[in-house]
Amino acid sequence: MAVDRAERTQQKRPSALGTLLGLPWRIAMVVLVSLFCSIIIEWVGMVWDWWSLPGSGHAEQTMSTEMGWLDTAFTRSLLFSDPVATASALVEWLHTWLFVKTGIAGWLAANEASGG
């Protein structure tokens, strides 16, 4: 009976290579879940007027503040020569693909202009 338990424990444990290969996926999932949670909190704050700035102003201010921290605390990188410029370019690219190219930005602008 003790041998069966030891065999089951040995079978469930991944190898060091498996753990190493699975690490980037785990990190990516943590980043995506935290991003999702921050978006939900931001939306709830806009609905219930938690923020002093209207609409997406709070999100813009928060992003600018965090980019400032990134600029002062993370000046060198092995992957990027200028992490803040890279992060700004990534945010711009995501905005273009998620809002402009899908037509959501135009729909929101038209909806805001019509008063709805």
Rank of each mutant, 00 (worst) to 15 (best):
W48T: 09
T72K: 11
M63E: 00
A113S: 10
V84Q: 02
G55W: 14
A16C: 09
E92D: 11
E92M: 05
R76C: 10
L98P: 02
I40P: 08
S64K: 11
G68S: 10
V100R: 06
W107D: 10
A105V: 00
T96F: 04
W50H: 04
R26C: 12
M46R: 00
Q10I: 11
P24T: 14
G55T: 06
I40K: 08
T75V: 11
W48F: 11
A109Y: 03
T102F: 01
L94E: 05
A73T: 03
L17G: 06
I39M: 15
T62P: 00
G103R: 06
G115F: 05
I41D: 01
A2K: 15
E112D: 08
F99T: 00
A89F: 09
S38Q: 07
D82Y: 03
S34N: 14
G68R: 10
Q11A: 15
S81A: 11
A28G: 11
W97A: 04
T96W: 01
I39T: 05
D4L: 15
E112T: 13
S56H: 10
I41V: 07
L94T: 03
K101W: 12
H58I: 00
S64R: 12
P83T: 10
M46I: 03
G103S: 09
L23Y: 15
V31M: 15
T72E: 00
A85R: 08
E66W: 07
T19N: 13
R8F: 15
E42Q: 01
A28Q: 10
M29G: 09
A85N: 11
M46E: 13
A85T: 07
P83N: 08
L108T: 09
R13Y: 12
I27T: 12
W69V: 13
S81D: 08
P83Q: 08
W69T: 10
M1G: 05
K12G: 06
L98F: 07
D4T: 15
T65Y: 00
T19V: 12
S34R: 03
E66I: 06
H58E: 01
G103N: 04
G45F: 03
V30Y: 15
D82G: 04
A2P: 09
D4P: 01
A59D: 01
T19L: 15
A89N: 05
W51A: 02
V84T: 10
V33W: 15
W48S: 12
R76A: 07
S38K: 03
L108W: 04
D71C: 04
E66N: 04
L94Q: 03
S77L: 01
S52M: 13
S56A: 14
F80K: 13
D49S: 06
T96N: 01
V84W: 00
H95I: 02
